[in-house]
Nucleic acid binder design. Structure first.
Lengths: 145, 145
DNA sequence: ATGGCTGCAAACACTTTGCATCGGC
DNA sequence: GCCGATGCAAAGTGTTTGCAGCCAT
């Protein structure tokens, strides 16, 4: 419940309007841990049959921008392929798209298996800036400021 | 180089044909760590201008099936949304789709930052079977066998 | 009342599929 | 020669965008 009110505050703070559609989507998101856009639309239609899928996407993207929700399960929107090898970490640079492989030194399997979870595949991506891009960005923001 | 030969063996073992297109894609994959289908197609065209994007997709999907390559950056092909909270691990059940959240107890930030990588966001998914589905599958395979 | 928000539909990007032809086995 | 693999183009998905009207502020 609190999450919903906080989100409304964030909307107003950003000078955005609070529409019935946004309230509805907020409510749906707050009470469902993991949904994709289509599912959200389907649920929303029950309450508000005229709501469009475009609005769902626009609203989700707004919410993500405001930090209300987070998108997961999607990296750069399409698949990359690599020759198969063991579990590893990907360091994905959100600036230049560079992908750095690391062998996984963390005890993930043990961790998950303590939950009774049987791991088939590990996918870990740390999204951020590689050394070079971080420095570039620092230099630029120094200029801009 | 060995990877290429092993892949050819896997093709033959699976009763699949070794075509120039497949050889070419294998070569490209072996010498490039991370490519998407379009990039692979673009590179392949330099060598074999008549190769089609459809063949690239079909071949990648075959290779993935054979375990020659692995697709990454794609989960269930589209994004899921959840109300934002701190970094966490997702345990994704590949059977029932259930997603279990865990607070992240692993020192990922430290690890990546030692590479000079500045993390903006952590995404970790351990794909496998949750306790219930693992047991269900065990029971079934016991029956099948 | 005015500008942001909406629905609708068309556009988009990536991937898959149907069909006739081609070529590895 | 047979059947699988290919190229081409069209269809399919999930997502984004242009536009005219609408409604929260």
């Amino acid at each position: 419940m609190t999450a919903r009110l906080r989100a409304i505050g964030q909307l107003r703070a950003a000078g955005k309007r609070l529409t019935p559609e946004r309230e509805l989507l907020l409510e749906i998101l707050a009470s469902n841990p993991h949904l994709d856009a289509m599912e959200i639309h389907r649920i929303a239609r029950k309450e508000e049959p005229r709501i469009s899928l475009a609005t769902v996407y626009r609203t989700l993207s707004l919410f993500e921008e405001l930090g209300v929700v987070r998108a997961c399960g999607l990296g750069e929107a399409h698949a990359h392929y690599e020759v198969r090898h063991d579990d590893h970490l990907h360091l994905v640079c959100s600036e230049c798209g560079r992908i750095i492989d690391l062998p996984s030194p963390v005890p993930l399997r043990k961790l998950a298996e303590s939950e009774g979870f049987r791991i088939e595949r590990i996918r870990l991506e740390l999204i951020g800036l590689c050394d070079a891009c971080a420095k570039k960005r620092d230099a630029k923001s120094g200029k801009d400021a």
